[in-house]
Design a binder for these strands. Structure first.
Lengths: 243, 243
DNA sequence: CGTCGATGCGCACACTGTACGCAGCGCGGA
DNA sequence: TCCGCGCTGCGTACAGTGTGCGCATCGACG
């Protein structure tokens, strides 16, 4: 406080204080926003809290980012940058596409807010990283001989998006409950049981699911479910390969 | 105002005023909420505005609905009630599943906010109408002889959800622009062109898409894309039918 | 007629995104 | 060396949000 009311004696001492503090920049803002989103979800991200986290006022952020929505767009494209897509020729097209889809799923599960905001704004972002992912997937499908690579991309990514979003939302509610996934599931069973009561076919499916949950790690079950659907799609696609 | 400060003379006259006004009930609240959501999207729904629309105060709604999120849950399940699922035996299983998925898509496009809120809360709603849809789809797949109907359901619905969500988000931004879909697309082309410049495969796909857009109704193109992916999935599934 | 439960409402609180105008710093020109 | 200007950050302010709380009213029932 004394330094503040009388800045002269400490002025150049303070200059040297934090040479690594990069002030405010679009990159640090986006990075920290992603950290907050990862930690507490999309409704916990507020400009004031983000500013505080960067030792800045809320409105300072607006020098680097036009609006909160734009910030989120930037965050979305940033995490799309985490998705690696193998080169065609590095392997079987199926292996390449599978790896890409798995990476997409991993990213969505690592950043569980992705599903919500994509639901609000769609995949229409056109951010450079998403474009790169698309381009490399197109290369994969083209090299495999698919006549309409973009159709294949749309089909696969829609599936991956829908499934991962559902998974991410589920995991979010699990985490909010403070329980492990297995605990949450067993806790949910009574009401689920009741919900499917009287529904002939669902009761059967429910029984099967309960049996499976009793012996297998829930995360593994989820992954298996994801892989099943992905294989269905890849099978369907390969029927469309010429010859 | 006179009537308000001195209510006596008009009191029983006023009672007869609007005998059809059902006061406030959970159903009317949900219905009106859906209307607001349809009109202006999820971020335009506020308890105060909804209350005003029902000639009520904002907090009155809380007598019938615990929280805004719960209200949205109710709205979601309500619109799921619009999805008809044919009986097994009414037709080919493929036709039945296709009809269901088309209905799901139609509902999502009619209520374009669905994608956003499902992204936030997942398909974990367990509302009665969604359960009914699942049950009837399970019946469809079971009757066709699928050994694991729930796997088939998860795969198809994930795809439909992902694709419809993306479509809905796109349509929302189109509407916000005040243009028709075709206008919007042609307006978007320059920047899209620029975005894919330097990306070999995407440029090809872009050229194809532009050519197609020039001769065909965009809505039809979207539907075709949806149907393509759905057929891919159904093809993949039918490989899993026992013999 | 008296009471009670259900319903609606006004107020208040904490919090949001963001427009606006001011304060300070560092740098280019005189 | 000094001046001025543009860039950055901040404090204040405004309109709007979800919702807890306690009061007023009103219909039904004992």
């Amino acid at each position: 406080m004394a330094a503040k009311t009388n800045p002269i004696p400490s002025v150049w001492a303070r200059r040297q204080r934090e040479p690594e503090q990069p002030a405010l920049s679009r990159e640090t803002i986006v990075r920290e926003a992603i950290a907050m989103l990862d930690a507490d979800g999309v409704e916990a991200l507020s400009m004031r809290k983000l500013g505080a986290r960067l030792n800045a006022g809320a409105t300072s952020l607006y020098r680097h980012v036009a609006t909160k929505d734009e910030l989120i767009e930037l965050a979305v494209d940033e995490v799309f940058g985490e998705i690696p897509v193998p080169d065609p020729g590095a392997s079987d097209w199926r292996a390449g596409v599978t790896a890409t889809c798995e990476a997409f799923r991993d990213t969505t599960l690592r950043h569980r807010w992705l599903g919500s905001v994509i639901g609000q704004a769609g995949l229409v972002y056109l951010g450079p990283n998403l474009i790169t992912v698309s381009e490399r997937m197109a290369a994969l499908f083209s090299a495999a001989g698919f006549p309409e690579p973009s159709r294949a991309i749309d089909t696969t990514l829609s599936y991956v998006l829908g499934m991962s979003t559902t998974e991410a939302a589920f995991l979010t509610t699990v985490m909010r409950s403070g329980q492990t996934e297995a605990e949450f599931i067993t806790g949910l069973m009574p009401s689920a049981q009741e919900a499917v009561a009287g529904h002939e076919f669902l009761s059967g499916a429910f029984a099967d699911a309960a049996a499976a949950a009793a012996v297998t790690d829930p995360a593994e079950l989820r992954h298996e479910k994801f892989a099943y659907g992905l294989n269905v799609i890849l099978d369907g696609l390969s029927l469309r390969l010429p010859r």
